[in-house]
Design a protein around this nucleic acid. Structure first.
Length: 478
RNA sequence: UCCUCCUUAGCUCAGUUGGUUAGAGCAUCUGACUGUUAAUCAGAGGGUCGUUGGUUCAAGUCCAACAGGGGGAGCCA
């Protein structure tokens, strides 16, 4: 048994002194041949271990280098220095894993996020990514806690699907066929009968349709799993593999749906403010440093904590698509020809329009409802005006659309009609349509991009820095 | 995929109108010092200037293509 260590976080959070501990972790810096800054991942902060170097073999001390894994036994005492309340007086020290300083790429200094992305296997060892991934864990946990408290059932939707009719984006093909010798039918087509599933299959682009099946029996369900889009998107907001939360609720209309989504976002932010204050504090300081490099005009007027607190305190602004278009048409930005894309009823809102509404006009999260049916998916419930659907998008400052959802079309005839109009093969979707044939009921749901939420709460500006191993076009190294 | 910018030491960057042996800070190594907080001081090592081709007496510097990365856009979460 070697799991006898005390975690740094527990030591630092207590004022207690005069007791013996064993700590294990990685050296961040070794100053003056006397002070080891030790980090074990449990906290943003390091434990300062004090070595009386006169009593130790210089050969051993030389092995205490940045990045080395060490185990220390000693006594927790009040610190004589100013930077910390308590410190560890070393009584015995063992190097568990050496770290050659000539070759180790991490130094006790600031590294660019781009450089750290190239060494994604080591970036966990930095302050920034330590904070990011502790927050990622906490956010995932809070999501489960939120739904569990409300009696939701966590439903595992399949990662491999045969459905290619959802129209949610380009898909990754899943096959065991020999790509160097693909079997063909007599008319020259790929013979999928010989493939593993006997038919074409893909990685899922959404668990929503499966979640609906669950909701119409279990009541309230949610999915939380990886999602795959094979789109050639090269932006700081897109990944080929990302995580999505998709709640689906029976007997909910659009307003119930919005209420739940707003409550959830506020719950998650409040949870992090309470449980990850140290990590958020670090990220806030990091952002402030970064802002200092920018010209005055581009600096944001709120700090990270202020922004998060602000979002929890304000009710989100709720407007219809039609109202949004009117605001844009009357905006000074339009009159000054600041928009690159035209504004008119019927067009989809562009990033620049969304950003204007959220960041300039309302200056808080905005929920937009009632989009034209032409620009939304087939499963959204048609409104009585015959022009719009019961859709809702929640827009956040800085990242745009964080949640997209709708009340679903529960009326069989209306749904089939819409599928025909949009060339969705109803025959292959018999399992989905069956829910509308047998005991259909009003229901609603939404999708939350987990990494988008991570970007908002951490203030990180590139989505590749909030997931451990980002998958993007031409990049799957780690 | 489109537009735009970038690529010089391990990292972050400077490098004049093309002109001798390409520089700095940090890191690393050696030595000094030792209650430090990205410790300090002195010295040393470290570069086929992203790749390929072109212009020129001469290219880190100018031109082209390609690769990788950043920012913006589209698609979306």
């Amino acid at each position: 048994m070697i799991n006898d260590r005390t975690k740094v976080k527990d030591i630092l959070e207590s004022d207690k002194t005069g007791y013996s501990v064993t700590v294990k972790g990685w050296v961040r810096t070794f100053r003056s041949n006397r002070f080891i800054a030790l980090n074990d991942g449990s906290s943003q902060y390091n434990l300062q271990a004090v070595v009386d170097f006169e009593k130790y073999d210089p050969a051993l001390l030389r092995r205490i280098t940045t990045g080395a894994a060490i185990s220390i036994h000693g006594e927790i005492v009040a610190s004589r220095g100013a930077g910390q309340r308590v410190e560890l007086q070393v009584q015995s020290l063992e190097v568990l894993g050496d770290c050659d300083p000539e070759k180790y790429p991490l130094q006790p200094k600031k590294h660019s996020l781009e450089f750290l992305r190239e060494i994604a296997h080591l970036r966990f060892r930095t302050n920034t990514f330590g904070a990011v991934f502790r927050i990622r864990h906490a956010l995932a946990f809070a999501i489960h806690q939120f739904f569990n408290k409300r009696g939701f059932v966590y439903l595992h939707s399949p990662v491999i699907t045969a459905s290619d009719a959802e129209g949610a984006g380009e898909m990754f093909r899943v096959t065991t066929l020999d790509l160097n010798d693909v079997p063909k039918t007599t008319d020259g087509q790929i013979d999928y009968k010989l493939d593993f599933f006997g038919r074409p299959t893909n990685l899922t682009v959404s668990g929503q349709l499966e979640a609906e099946l669950g909701a119409l029996a279990l009541g309230d369900v949610y999915t939380f799993g990886p999602t795959f889009r094979a789109e050639n998107s090269n932006t700081p907001r897109h990944l080929a593999e990302f995580w999505m939360i998709e709640p689906e609720m029976a007997f909910y209309d659009l307003e119930d749906n919005m209420n739940l989504a707003e409550q959830m976002l506020k719950y998650l932010i409040t949870y992090l403010l309470k449980h990850n204050a140290d990590d958020l504090d670090f990220l806030e300081k990091r952002l402030l440093d970064e802002e200092k490099q920018k010209p005055q005009q581009e600096r944001s007027d709120m700090s990270l904590m202020e922004k998060l607190t602000f979002c929890c305190e304000q009710p989100f602004e709720r407007i219809t698509y039609t109202e949004a278009i009117d605001i844009l048409l009357q905006s000074s930005a339009l009159k000054k020809k600041k928009f690159q894309y035209p504004v008119a009823w019927g067009v989809d809102l562009q990033s620049e329009h969304e950003r204007y509404l959220v960041e300039k006009h309302f200056k808080k999260p905005v929920i937009i409802t009632g989009y034209p049916k032409e620009i939304k998916a087939f499963y959204m419930r048609q409104n009585t005006d015959d022009k719009t659907v019961a859709a809702m998008d929640i827009l956040f400052p800085g990242i745009g659309e964080i949640i997209g959802g709708s009340q679903r079309e529960e009326r069989y005839e209306k749904l089939v009609q819409r599928m025909e109009e949009m060339h969705i093969p109803a025959k292959e979707m018999f399992w989905y349509l069956d829910t509308r044939r047998f005991g259909s009921c009003p229901h609603a749901g939404y999708g939350l991009g987990f990494e988008r939420m991570m970007m908002f709460v951490t203030g990180m500006s590139n989505i590749r820095d909030v997931i451990p191993f980002p998958r993007t076009p031409k990049n799957a190294e780690f």
